[in-house]
C-alpha cells in the first residue's frame, strides 16, 4: 500500500507531469513532421537524377543507374514501415544515414553544423536580453524624456525591417560601400584552412565569422526586450512594496535592483524561452544571407534535395530545444516566483 501511495503521489507531481507532457509533444511533432516531409511533392531520387542529367548531360537511364549505386535507402518501402524503423533507430540514438551525402550518418552532419548555430543563437540571445533589460529599465525611469523617445523610435523601426533584410543592409553598406569588412572573407563559419582547437587564433576567427549574424540578431531583437522591460518595470514601479521600500529609506540603487528589477524581469523569462525556438527556426534566412554554415542553411539545402533524414533530425533538434526551453522556463519561474508553485497543488 505504501509503495502504491508513493507512486500515485509521484505521478501527480507537477514536475513529473510537466516533463511527461514535454516528452509527449516532442514525440507527436516528430511523428507529424515525419509524414509531412515524406508527403512533399518530389523525392530525393528524382531531384538527384534531374540534377545529374542537367549538369553531366547524361541520359535518364545512366543517371538512374548512378543514383541507385549511391542511394542506399529503399524509398519504395511502405511509409509506415519506414516510420517504425525510424522510431526504433531514434530510440537507440540513431538518426539514420543521409540520403544525399551517401554513407554519412545524419548525427555527424548535425554535429558539424549545429554548434555554429548554437553559438550564434546563444550569444545573441544573452546579449540582446541583457542589453534590453538595462535599456528598458533606463527607459522606464526616464520615461517621456528624449532617452525614452530615441529608444522607442529605434525599436519600432527595427521591428519594421525583417531581420534577413537588416542582414542584407549590413552587407550592402558596411561590406560593399563603406568596406568595413571583406564581404567574401566573412563567409562561412571559419576561414579556409582554420583548424578547430583550443587556442586564441581559432576563437578570434570563429568570432570574426559569427560577428555579423550576431550583430544582426541583437540589433533586431533588442528593441523587443527593451519595450517589454520598459512596460514591466513601469508596472512594478506602481506596486505597494516598492513604495514601502522607499518609505523605509532604502537606497535608490537597492530598490532598483532588488525590488523593481527582480520582479520586472520575471514575465520576460517566459518570452525568453519561447524566443529560443523562433531564433533557431529563423536562422535559416540569416545564415543563408551570410552564407554561415549552420543548421539553418543545412535545413534549406536538405529541403531542396529532399534529404528526409537530415530535415527530420533538424526538426527534432529545434523542437527539442523549444520544448525543453519552455520546460526549463516553467520550472525556473516556479522557483523564482513562489506564488506559481503553490497554485498547481
Amino acid at each position: 500500500m505504501a509503495t502504491s501511495a508513493m507512486l500515485r503521489k509521484f505521478f501527480k507531481n507537477y514536475y513529473f507531469r510537466r516533463t511527461l507532457k514535454a516528452v509527449a509533444s516532442i514525440f507527436v511533432v516528430t511523428t507529424l513532421t515525419f509524414f509531412l516531409i515524406r508527403l512533399m511533392p518530389g523525392n530525393p531520387l528524382d531531384i538527384y537524377v534531374n540534377s545529374q542529367m542537367q549538369s553531366l548531360g547524361v541520359s535518364r537511364e545512366e543517371a538512374e543507374a548512378m543514383a541507385s549505386s549511391i542511394f542506399q535507402v529503399d524509398l519504395k518501402r511502405p511509409v509506415l514501415l519506414q516510420y517504425t524503423d525510424y522510431v526504433t533507430g531514434l530510440l537507440h540514438g540513431d538518426f539514420g544515414l543521409s540520403i544525399v551525402s551517401a554513407r554519412t550518418p545524419v548525427s555527424a552532419l548535425i554535429l558539424r553544423f549545429l554548434p555554429w548555430t548554437m553559438f550564434v543563437v546563444s550569444v545573441s540571445l544573452i546579449l540582446s536580453f541583457t542589453l534590453g533589460i538595462l535599456i528598458g529599465t533606463l527607459m522606464a525611469y526616464k520615461r517621456n524624456t528624449w532617452v525614452d523617445y530615441v529608444f522607442t523610435t529605434f525599436s519600432s523601426i527595427m521591428t519594421a525591417i525583417p531581420d534577413f533584410m537588416v542582414a542584407t543592409l549590413i552587407i550592402v553598406y558596411f561590406g560593399v560601400q563603406w568596406k568595413v569588412f571583406s564581404v567574401t572573407g566573412v563567409r562561412g563559419s571559419l576561414s579556409p584552412g582554420m583548424v578547430a582547437g583550443f587556442n586564441a587564433k581559432f576563437f578570434i576567427d570563429a568570432f570574426y565569422h559569427a560577428a555579423l549574424p550576431i550583430i544582426t540578431l541583437v540589433v533586431c531583437n533588442v528593441g523587443n526586450w527593451m519595450l517589454q522591460m520598459r512596460g514591466s518595470t513601469m508596472a512594478t514601479l506602481g506596486e505597494d512594496y516598492v513604495m514601502v521600500a522607499k518609505a523605509r529609506g532604502l537606497s535608490e540603487a537597492r530598490i532598483t535592483t532588488g525590488y523593481v528589477g527582480r520582479n520586472a524581469i520575471l514575465p520576460l523569462f517566459t518570452t525568453l524561452a519561447l524566443s529560443i525556438g523562433g531564433m533557431f527556426g529563423g536562422s535559416v534566412l540569416i545564415e543563408t544571407v551570410f552564407t554561415y554554415n549552420g543548421i539553418g542553411m543545412k535545413l534549406a539545402s536538405s529541403l531542396g534535395a529532399r534529404d528526409y533524414p537530415v530535415m527530420q533530425a533538424i526538426f527534432i533538434i529545434i523542437t527539442t530545444a523549444t520544448v525543453s526551453a519552455n520546460l526549463f522556463a516553467d520550472f525556473l519561474y516556479g522557483w523564482l516566483d513562489p506564488r506559481i508553485r503553490t497554485e498547481g497543488r
Binding site: 509533444s25 507527436v28 511533432v29 507529424l32 513532421t33 509531412l36 516531409i37 508527403l39 512533399m40 511533392p41 518530389g42 525556438g277 523562433g278 533557431f280 527556426g281 529563423g282 535559416v284 534566412l285 535545413l299 534549406a300 529541403l303 530535415m311 533538424i314 526538426f315 529545434i318 523542437t319 523549444t322 520544448v323
Partner: peptide, 19 residues
C-alpha cells in the same frame, strides 16, 4: 494550438511551401 506552437514555425512553413 499547443501543437502548432511547439512545431518550429519557420521550418514548418518551408516544408508546407513544398505543397
Amino acid at each position: 494550438a499547443e501543437l502548432v506552437i511547439t512545431i518550429p514555425q519557420y521550418p514548418l512553413l518551408l516544408v508546407l511551401a513544398g505543397f
